[in-house]
Structures are given as structure tokens and as C-alpha cells.
Amino acid sequence: MARCSLCHREGSEGGYCGYHRDAHANLVAAYEAWRKSTELSWNAFLEEVIQTKEVGGWARDVAHDLLSNDQWGNKSSNNFP
């Protein structure tokens, strides 16, 4: 059975386990609210998320992963899924 690329938990689909998939979905949903209120780009949002203490550990893991996998690593890029 495939394992999560972040926590090695079994039962992964598309690279993430159930918890990290939920965290990813929450990131996408929250970005809508952030974009409307601050006009941040997706990558700048992820940078912000990593530094915010209210963000859950699994959500932060996903944000790190998305940023490190962004080939441009550019704050203003908007590789919003």
C-alpha cells in the first residue's frame, strides 16, 4: 500500500494520507478567504501559513511541501491548484 510522502502513514492517495489531504483541502479553502481580503498570491500565502502559529502541524507540512515542490520558488507566482 502506498505511503504518505510527508508522514509515511499508510493509505495514501495522490501522495498524501487522509490527514494531509484534509489539510490540503483546508489550505485551498482558506486561500479563497485570504485572496479576497489581502490579494496575496498562492505562494506568498503558503509562506505566510508556514510562519503562522495558529496553523495546524499537518497543514504546515503540506504548505512546506507545496512550496518546496514549486519549481520557480517565486513568491509572486500563483501556482494555485
Binding site: 484534509d22 489539510a23 481580503s37 495558529e54 495546524g56 502541524g57 497543514a59
Partner: peptide, 12 residues
């Protein structure tokens, strides 16, 4: 715990 660990805040 799952709610906390997957939580992403929104600003106001």
C-alpha cells in the same frame, strides 16, 4: 486533534 492539526486560519 485532527481539527487542530489540519486547521488553516483566515484573517480578519
Amino acid at each position: 486533534e485532527v481539527e487542530i492539526q489540519t486547521f488553516v486560519p483566515t484573517p480578519f
